[in-house]
Simulated scan of single mutants.
Amino acid sequence: KREKEGFGQMMVKVRAFALFREILGKERDMEIPEGSTVLSLLEAIGSISPAFKEQAFDHSGGLEDYVLLMINKKRIDPVNDLSIPLAEGDELAIFPPVAGG
């Protein structure tokens, strides 16, 4: 049973909307290490897509507070919930700021 402990990979789906969709495409499956968090997934996306990183993260490397995130269609707090561990088959939806005013 040793091989199942840690270091495995899992697949998650990333869905992007509006501006982020233009950068990343509508959706992509990403293979990430088991136990990865929301933040580590976002950082992995940023390492693949500098344009996404530029839009979604501030200069200090923190996620911009206007980025809207949902895991499996449930909204999460981009400030407090980035450390949530993801599971095989989870879906992360990423929304840019919604223009208003």
Rank of each mutant, 00 (worst) to 15 (best):
K26I: 09
E27L: 09
E27S: 11
E27W: 10
E27R: 09
R28L: 07
D29L: 10
E31W: 15
I32F: 12
P33V: 08
E34R: 06
E34T: 08
G35A: 01
G35Y: 03
S36H: 02
S36P: 04
T37A: 13
V38L: 06
V38I: 10
L41S: 10
L42R: 06
L42M: 11
E43I: 02
E43N: 07
A44D: 04
I45L: 14
I45Y: 09
S47R: 15
I48Q: 14
I48N: 12
S49H: 13
S49E: 13
A51R: 11
F52I: 11
F52C: 07
Q55V: 12
Q55R: 15
A56Q: 14
A56E: 14
H59G: 13
H59W: 10
S60K: 13
S60E: 15
G61E: 08
G61R: 11
G61L: 10
G62I: 02
G62C: 00
L63D: 01
L63P: 02
E64D: 07
E64R: 07
D65N: 15
Y66M: 03
Y66H: 06
Y66R: 02
V67P: 06
V67R: 05
L69F: 04
L69M: 05
M70K: 15
M70G: 10
I71W: 13
I71T: 12
N72K: 05
K73Q: 03
K73F: 00
K74V: 02
K74F: 03
R75T: 05
R75Y: 01
R75S: 02
R75L: 03
I76V: 10
D77V: 03
D77F: 08
P78I: 02
P78T: 12
N80L: 15
N80Y: 15
N80P: 09
L82T: 07
L82H: 05
S83H: 08
S83C: 06
I84N: 06
I84R: 05
P85C: 05
P85L: 04
A87P: 03
A87L: 15
G89W: 03
G89P: 05
G89I: 05
D90C: 04
D90A: 00
E91Q: 08
A93V: 10
A93D: 13
F95P: 14
F95E: 10
P96I: 04
P96N: 09
P96M: 09
P96C: 10
P97I: 07
P97G: 07
P97F: 07
